[in-house]
């Protein structure tokens, strides 16, 4: 499915021929839940609202350290780069100019990335094409062993 036109205004770095929409709009989960735990889609956010999930052992703070701890509860550990490694699943955390996490993307087996865009759709994209005013820049990579599909 091709990208809707409005996305290009928000993410001017997106190259339409290199991206695709992979789901319809769904308000029930966000990018963090989609990256951390795709097998159980939930809205992950460190705020005290019942419609959000946050691992109980992690401080409810909007910081890179807290997000790193949250991803670690699902087996992710900090790694050096976005380079594709066989048998490894990676995530990338975007941070704005104030140091606040804004977005997370997950690497697919072919090296492309997938993201849930806020309240909107999922897309497949090149990682760096989402950098910019909306999400800031990628500042953290984490990795875990990729579970082979059944």
């Amino acid at each position: 499915m091709t990208l809707r036109a409005g996305l290009l205004a928000i993410f001017p770095g997106l190259v339409p021929t290199e991206c695709e929409q992979t789901s319809s709009r769904d308000v029930s989960y966000n990018c963090i839940g989609f990256a951390a735990e795709p097998e159980r889609l939930r809205w992950w956010q460190p705020i005290w609202i019942p419609s959000t999930y946050w691992p109980t052992e992690v401080p409810r703070v909007a910081s890179v350290a807290a997000y790193e701890q949250a991803f670690a509860t699902r087996g992710y550990a900090r790694c050096a780069s976005e380079l594709l490694e066989v048998g490894v699943e990676k995530i990338a955390l975007f941070v704005n100019g104030h140091g606040v996490p804004t977005h997370a993307a997950r690497q697919l087996p072919d090296g492309s990335w997938t993201s849930k865009l806020g309240f909107e759709e999922d897309i497949r994209h090149d990682l760096r094409q989402l950098e910019g005013a909306a999400y800031g820049t990628v500042t953290l990579f984490m990795a875990r062993a990729r579970i082979a599909p059944l």
């Binding site: 308000v27 029930s28 419609s51 959000t52």
Partner: peptide, 26 residues
């Protein structure tokens, strides 16, 4: 399903959502 739990909780003062359902809108 949508994020209406907060509105309902604000109006009623109730929260019938079990802890294990956190983040699961359905």
């Amino acid at each position: 399903p949508n994020h209406w739990g907060w509105a309902l909780q604000s109006i009623t003062g109730e929260n019938p959502v079990p802890e294990e359902a956190a983040g699961d809108l359905r």
